[in-house]
């Protein structure tokens, strides 16, 4: 095991996959000479050259589509979005072309492409730069959506994403890039579609993904333990497809569930998980499923407002107490 920062783990995944497969190239804003806006692609230009690490102009729609065309004809592009907020400009290419070209062609074409970049709040960036947008992408058939919360999962899942035959939306977290964690040495691949139990527990299951895992769920579980409550923490990592078996097993074991997500509640992904539990695990529930999510308002710049809008350790504990009727 080596201790790596989240950005280093991603860098290693890109490096290893580019060394392994000449079809893999990285394109995006500032990815080459600048080493990436968040330094994820550090050193790759030097190693792989300017055709495989491509500095694109600020034209998200255009270079997303160039990636899709390249993927349709035998390459495996990794398209970096400086943040997912900017990828909204590229939605047409992702949704109408990447996600549909296999279907429209009746299976003649495939589109193995990864769109990756940071999602969620950055830190004092106000509303245009602080959005957790995964719910937008899980909506569309034809896409896979991943949101790793640790360096090990970031590396292992990015390698799986690059090797996948489908378009993959890979949502990193701006506030996780510097966070460190143990990453297995050598070939480390995490299969798409498997959740991971990040903490064992028996009284309640907290389901989460991405940054909420370390920012509030694991710290809340620690504090709950001090109060005699044993919380199981299930990190989905993969949102589409998601691990139905792991969720069903956890509900059967703990009978109580809290879902924690950074995004908004309206048509949020947590609502979809709650829907799954209501349909498939109803008889195992001892309390209604509770959700902790970003407040349904636009993100503010002021420090106190920004804090209030995001899920917190306190709000997770409150929700756990509620499903335990304490």
């Amino acid at each position: 095991m080596a201790e790596l920062a989240y950005r280093e783990a991603l860098n290693h995944a890109l490096d290893e996959e580019m060394a392994r497969d000449p079809r893999v190239f990285l394109m995006g804003e500032e990815v080459a000479r600048y080493d990436g806006a968040y330094k994820v692609s550090k050193g790759l230009l030097e190693k792989y050259g300017s055709a495989r690490v491509v500095d694109a102009p600020i034209s998200e729609l255009g270079f997303a589509g160039i990636g899709v065309g390249a993927a349709m004809t035998g390459l495996r592009p990794v398209i970096e979005m400086m943040t997912w907020n900017f990828a909204i400009l590229a939605m047409d290419q992702i949704v109408n072309n990447a996600a549909k070209v296999r279907h429209m062609s009746g299976g003649q074409l495939r589109c193995p492409i990864v769109f990756r970049g940071p999602g969620g709040a950055g830190g004092r960036l106000s509303s245009q730069h602080s959005q957790a947008l995964e719910a937008n992408y899980v909506h569309f058939p034809g896409l896979k959506v991943l949101a790793p919360g640790t360096p090990a999962d970031a590396k292992g899942l990015l390698k799986s994403a690059i090797r996948d035959e489908n378009p993959v939306i890979f949502i990193e977290a701006e506030l996780l890039y510097g966070s460190k964690g143990e990453v297995p040495e050598g070939e480390h691949v995490v299969p798409i579609g498997l959740a991971d139990v990040k903490r064992e527990g028996s009284d309640v299951t907290i389901i989460t993904w991405s940054r909420m895992l370390t920012s509030c769920v694991l710290p809340a579980a620690e504090r709950l333990a001090a109060n005699g409550i044993s919380a199981k923490v299930l990190d989905l990592r993969s949102l589409r497809p998601f691990d139905t078996e792991a969720i069903a097993a956890a509900v059967k074991q703990t009978n109580r569930v809290v879902i924690v997500e950074e995004g908004w509640s309206w048509a949020g992904f947590g609502g979809h998980i709650a829907d799954f539990i209501a349909r498939e695990c109803f008889d195992d529930l001892d309390a209604p499923v509770s959700r902790v999510h970003g407040l349904d308002v636009n993100m503010s710049y002021a420090a106190n407002l920004e804090r209030a809008i995001q899920p917190s350790v306190e709000r997770v504990i409150e929700a756990v107490n509620a499903v335990l009727y304490r």
Binding site: L61, G62, F63, A64, G65, I66, G67, V68, G69, A70, A71, M72, T73, G74, L75, P77, D92, Q93, N96, N97, V101, M104, S105, L109
Partner: peptide, 20 residues
């Protein structure tokens, strides 16, 4: 390589194919 229904949506794809 196809008929596309969003006006102009295929224009980047062709550049991507040429890139490849």
């Amino acid at each position: 390589y196809g008929g596309y229904g969003i006006v102009g949506g295929q224009i980047p794809l062709a550049a991507g194919m040429a890139f490849a």
